[in-house]
Simulated scan of single mutants.
Amino acid sequence: MAVCVAVIAKENYPLYIKTSNADNELKYSFTVHTSLDVVEEKISSVGKNANDLRELYLGLLYPTEDYKVYGYVTNTKVKFVLVVESSNTSLRDNEIRSV
């Protein structure tokens, strides 16, 4: 299922990164840090209208050839990033949301 799970602080430094394969930990770390740009873009686009009900689940941040990266942000701006393999087609968006 997930190859990497990361918890990122409000200031964008990693609090926790857990990977399924320790040999690829640096690769997954780069993938997580790359996704932070997309997370910040989604947060700023939603936050322009103060009356909007902010959706905490950001959904698919970006797909790559090998992985799909999903994001979730809390009210305190702590970010959760989940990296799954692209070959895993059995996962749907509502299943990722429940994780």
Rank of each mutant, 00 (worst) to 15 (best):
M1V: 09
A2R: 15
V3T: 08
V3N: 03
C4M: 07
I8T: 07
A9D: 05
K10Y: 15
K10D: 12
E11D: 12
E11V: 13
N12D: 09
N12A: 06
Y13T: 11
P14F: 04
P14E: 02
L15E: 03
L15A: 03
L15M: 13
Y16D: 10
Y16K: 15
Y16M: 13
I17V: 15
K18G: 03
A22T: 09
D23N: 14
N24Q: 14
E25D: 08
E25G: 02
Y28P: 08
S29D: 03
F30N: 11
V32I: 15
H33V: 05
H33D: 00
L36R: 15
L36F: 14
L36M: 15
D37I: 13
D37Q: 10
I43R: 11
S44M: 12
V46I: 13
V46Q: 10
G47Q: 10
K48D: 04
K48Q: 10
K48T: 09
K48V: 14
N49F: 12
A50L: 12
N51Q: 08
D52F: 12
R54D: 02
L56E: 07
L58I: 05
L60I: 09
P63G: 02
P63S: 06
P63W: 01
P63K: 09
T64F: 01
D66Q: 04
K68E: 11
Y70E: 01
G71S: 01
Y72E: 05
T76L: 12
T76N: 08
T76H: 11
K77W: 12
K77P: 05
K79W: 02
K79Q: 02
F80P: 07
V81F: 01
V84K: 00
V84T: 05
S87Y: 13
T89G: 00
T89E: 00
N94C: 14
E95A: 11
R97S: 09
R97C: 11
R97A: 12
V99N: 09
V99C: 09
